[in-house]
Amino acid sequence: MKGLDFDFLKFNWLDAIDIVLVAILVYYIYSLVRNTLAVNLILGMFIILIAYYVVSSLHMNLLTAIISKFMSVGIIALVIIFQPEIRRFLLHIGKSTFLQKNKAWWGRLFGSKDIERDNLLRIKPIIDACKTMKKTRTGALIVFVKYYDEEFFTNSCEVIDGKISKRLLESIFQKHSPLHDGAVVISENKIKSASCILPLTDNDKLPPQFGLRHRAGIGVSELSDAVAVIVSEETGEIAYAKQGRVRMNVSFGELEKLLNKDF
């Protein structure tokens, strides 16, 4: 129609790229916070935001002032509250760069047999230890992290920094060992620490038979990119926790595939 400006309806290829990039960013953030405590935090902040607009529209000056003061430090509060998620996001960006992916691609193309052999050498002692602990019903919690956080782990762990071996894992988790309580943390092809006290999950939908080991394994996988292998002391069954979700009754073949993929 004459006199109307429809420039805002123009759509070009840069707009399409912009939308795609925003969609990827939103999905990336969603994949990081999915099944974690961050979802509840976001929901809480959304409720506070709605409450602010409600009390403001009703001219409830006292509540409006209180909530507005709280929201005035929003950016700082977001950085503090979502520090683990922001850290995970930056780590994922670093791992997903072209050089990292290109390095892995060339490795698979020209050295796939060497990579598979190295993975088998790293994983076999862990699988063998889990077989023994399953048979003897020895409870165990083994956490695998790609980036070892010195500040996070060393404050609550005994530093080991030793070679991965079946006997070392079995000796740590045997019932009379002073280190058997807590988790073993494996990173950089080493057993970095043992007897680690990890944060428990707040998920109230878990089965009641889950003990502290299962809740700690799920909890650490919620707060970081860690994966956890849990051996039940009561049943000997093996569970695998990743991103706040847990797989039960994992066979040794499945465990090898999962570790080969994630570790």
Rank of each mutant, 00 (worst) to 15 (best):
M1S: 14
M1C: 06
M1P: 10
K2Y: 14
K10E: 05
I17C: 11
D18L: 12
V20D: 06
A23F: 15
I24C: 15
I24H: 03
V26T: 11
Y27Q: 12
S31R: 14
S31P: 00
V33C: 08
N35P: 09
T36K: 01
T36F: 01
L37N: 07
I42N: 01
I42M: 12
L43P: 00
F46T: 13
F46C: 10
Y52E: 15
V54T: 08
H59T: 12
N61W: 11
I67T: 05
I67F: 01
I67M: 03
M71W: 04
M71G: 05
I76M: 10
A77F: 15
Q83A: 11
F89Q: 07
L91W: 08
G94L: 10
K95W: 10
S96L: 12
F98A: 09
L99N: 12
W105C: 02
G107R: 11
R108D: 06
L109C: 02
K113C: 01
K113N: 10
I115L: 02
D118F: 04
D118L: 09
L120G: 04
L121S: 00
P125F: 00
I127P: 04
C130G: 03
C130Y: 04
T132D: 02
K134Y: 06
R137T: 13
T138F: 04
T138I: 14
G139F: 05
L141V: 00
I142R: 00
V143M: 11
D149C: 10
F153G: 08
N155E: 13
V159N: 10
I160F: 15
S165W: 03
K166F: 03
R167F: 08
S171W: 01
I172R: 00
H180D: 06
V184R: 13
E188Y: 11
K190H: 15
S195R: 05
I197S: 13
L198N: 11
P207K: 00
Q209E: 14
A216Q: 15
S221G: 11
L223C: 08
V229W: 07
V229F: 07
V231Q: 05
Y240Q: 03
V250R: 07
G253T: 13
E254Y: 05
K257C: 07
F263P: 00
F263Q: 08
